Structure formats: C-alpha cells, structure tokens
Simulated scan of single mutants.
Amino acid sequence: MPMLLVCTLGAIELPIRMRRAAAAVAVAVLIVAVIQVARFERSSPIKSISQYADLYDAIPRSDIVNVRIADQLSFEWAVYYLRDHRAVYTKGELIYYPAAQTDKSSEKSRAADAEYILTDTKQEESAIWSNEKFFLYPLKAPRLQDASATNK
C-alpha cells in the first residue's frame, strides 16, 4: 500500500489523463485487496481460540491425562494448553514436528496410570467436562477434590 500511495502522489504532476489512470489503478488494487480479505475470512473456520483455551483450566494439573485427539489442529492446541499438565499423548501428531520413532513403553505405563482421557470424539458415557472441541472422561473414580474442581 505505501508504494501505491507514492505512485499516486507521483502522478499528481502528470496530465489529467494519466492522473485518472493512476487513480483507476489505485482503486482496482484496493478492490482486489478487499476481495482477498473477504475470501480469507470466509475460508477460515476458526475465528477464536477460546474453545481451545478452555482446556487449560478444565483438567487438574496434578493428574495424568491420556490425550487421544484425531484432529490435527485440535491436537496442536491441546499440546499447547496442556504444556503445564501431566499429559500422555497416545493419539495425535504435530503437523509441523513429526514424531520420531522412540520406545513407547514408558508412555504405555504412564497411560495406564491416567485418571482422565481427553478426546475429540464423543463417547457413550457422559463427559465430566466438554466444550465445542473436546470431551474429558474419567478413567478411574475421581477423587473428591478433583470432582469439585472440574464442576466449576
């Protein structure tokens, strides 16, 4: 846009016909820019990350949660918001950082100790917490303090 302004201001000393042509080009570029922004707005399904941010406070930090999320974008946000939690990632992969081939035996034992499972798929049993993207289910009987913390 600054270059367009410089070109338009430079055209001020040109004859009237050239000034009109420069103004027409400026208007055309502006219309194309507005169309591009409108097209991007329509194509972007996510307008807010609040549905992902809810995850940060929904899960107790002291408990182990088994994360099984198929949707790649939801998985990335879950990894971000669960960075301070004790999470075991048994399903899902970061798009930009493919997982290396590692020994998964330690993760299997941690997954067996998990108190909760976080998924993006609705199950038959009722979730103890959910929003538009995630469902949290207990794997073990919740402790009294955890049950009161998740019902806030």
Rank of each mutant, 00 (worst) to 15 (best):
Y89N: 01
I69Q: 04
S109K: 11
R42W: 03
S106Y: 13
Y137A: 10
L55S: 07
Y81D: 01
I59A: 01
G10K: 07
A127I: 00
L139Q: 01
D71Y: 02
V67M: 11
D57V: 12
N131Y: 03
T119S: 14
P60K: 00
I35V: 13
R110F: 06
P138Q: 03
A100I: 08
P142I: 09
Q51T: 13
P60N: 00
L14D: 12
V88H: 10
Y137P: 11
R17M: 11
Y81T: 02
V65F: 02
A100W: 06
I12H: 00
Q36E: 08
S74A: 15
W129E: 05
L144Q: 11
S74P: 10
L139Y: 02
R110P: 00
L139G: 02
K47P: 04
K140G: 04
Y80F: 11
E132N: 14
A38S: 00
W129V: 03
N66M: 15
L144Y: 08
G92K: 03
E76H: 15
T121S: 12
A99Q: 13
I35M: 10
V88D: 07
I128H: 04
P45R: 02
I117P: 02
L73F: 15
V79E: 14
F134V: 04
A141Q: 03
I95R: 12
Y81A: 01
A23V: 05
S106I: 11
R17V: 11
R39D: 13
E124Y: 08
R17N: 10
P15I: 10
L118C: 10
V88F: 15
L14F: 08
L82R: 03
A26P: 13
A24K: 09
F75C: 01
A100E: 13
A112F: 09
Y81N: 09
D113M: 12
E132V: 09
V65H: 04
I46G: 02
A114P: 07
P138F: 03
S74E: 11
E76F: 15
Y137V: 07
Q72M: 12
P45W: 07
A28K: 01
